[in-house]
Design a protein around this nucleic acid. Sequence first.
RNA 1: GGUCUGUUGGUGAAGCGGUUAACACGGUGCCCUCUCAAGGCAUUAUUCACGGGUUCAAGUCCCGUACAGACUACCA
Length: 549
Amino acid sequence: MTRKDLANLMFPNVTETIYDLEKKYPKRKLDDSQIVTRYAPSPTGFIHMGNLLSAFIANKVAKDTNGIFYLRIEDTDNKRKVENGISKIIDDLANFSIVPDEGVMSEDSQKGEYGPYIQSERQEIYNVYAKYMIENDLAYPCFCTETDLENIRSNQEAKKERIGYYSKYATCRNMSVDEAYRRIENKEKYVIRLKSVGDFEKRVVVNDLVRGKVIFPENDIDHVLVKSDGIPVYHFAHVIDDHLMRTTHILRGEEWLSSVPLHLQLFLMLGFEVPKYAHLGLVMKIDENGVRRKLSKRKDKEAAISFYHEKGVPIEAVKLYLMTIANSNFEAFLDANPTAKIEDFKFDFKKVSASGTLFDLDKLINISRNYISRLTALEVYNYALKWALEFDKEFASLLEKYKDYSISIFNIERNQKKPRKDYDTFSSIKSHIWYMYDEYFTDLEYNWAKINDKKEISEILDSYINNYYDIEDDKDTWFNKIKELASSFGYCPDMKEYKLNPDNYKGNVSDIATVIRVAVTTSTMSPDLYEILKLLGTDRIKNRFINIK
RNA sequence: GGUCUGUUGGUGAAGCGGUUAACACGGUGCCCUCUCAAGGCAUUAUUCACGGGUUCAAGUCCCGUACAGACUACCA
């Protein structure tokens, strides 16, 4: 029996060779500066912040260099599969305007010459390499059972030796071809393991784009390459896929860093060119106990991107935030070029933080607030309506019913060099402007301030609406009238004068203005009163005044 | 246990052998002001996890320690 016989027994249907595959998936006709990279999630149907960040960066890098960004689905583990998982991922990405150039485009369509891009459809390809490795003594079948493996492990623990299936502990490594052949013929279960050529005493250097040189012992573990069900493990699939898809840069989470020595060995054994690696820091958070840990999609609501959707954080703001955590110099760039877009900024691997980023919701919200403040009133209206249609139907119907009026509300103090920044998210808008709609102006609780005597309030309001208020007044006239009103009730019309001689007056203009403000909004805080009154109109003002008696 | 990685303020961070240790968010105070928001002005790390060493000079280089994280699966 030869290795070739063994290989044929294991893979009777494989007729292609690795050389055929090389020809079938030729090197891409791109120059060295063009980056080919990918996002390769499992179809769990759920993208969380950390994943989104790496997809975002990968896409950015490809776009920056006029390269290719593709989507590959890694479904070699059935436990991770979820109904419609693929479309959910694609939709989420599309929401952030990340559309792959190539790869999986929808639940049942793929695009590109380097596919298939779903691992479960690449079984024949993996078989070709597995067969090649068996034939060339680069891998071997291993018949160890779970208990065999446990024994090895406990044995190693007892002797305080390194854990793993390697050298003298790799019991199937030196099994004769004849025995292996016989046992496979006997239908014994087996996995295929790498016949590692590494030496733990020797070092390999990994050149990581974000961390620089990282030195590891060589890998000497005979890792499982193909599971007993014939499906490859991640490591094997990664090397084959990324080579055949001619990926130039592998961007992935830090959790993969320590398996690079294995991957390097695989690339070498298979005669593949080694791609460049960039291991991104994990997105972390401080939990309730003050412990810094990986942002978890199960425990942390802010990990789910749907959280931002529900909250009404503009997608553009999330992108800006992602860019600032991807490259910390992005903020400075934006400061220097206020009108610049993310597309104008060039991503730099060297500027990626190697330590895990602590996810900062406050900062994201702040970015969102600033972003919303820069929109036009119409844009705010459209976004707010879109959000409300999904999450607050009642509010949505008011927005639709009073479209122009609503836009005018959003316009208050917006067209000025430094626009008002009331709204941090679209979901927060209603709490700022509810009182502008009569439909909501019921069951009121007035928050009177300094002047809280019913009789005085009533007199002030009567006098104002009967003797002073005119909707046609310009702002100066309007305010002068408030001052006159204040004087007539013994309140100082001028703030400076009041501060000099507070004892000469019952109070000042602001106290009077506050009465009017509370009467129409119930609150002591509001945007520009002049604008509010003007938008409400005389009749509504009157009604609200009467309401108070 | 082993192998890696990381550690600069409340937070994100700049810094790459000589700087007053940037900048942004947040906090605090004051000013402006009809309120709020915004804005303006201040202020918020005598010190870069700790201990040694190299150097005329160290967050910055080296070594130890501590802490945190990742990996150590027939999961990715």
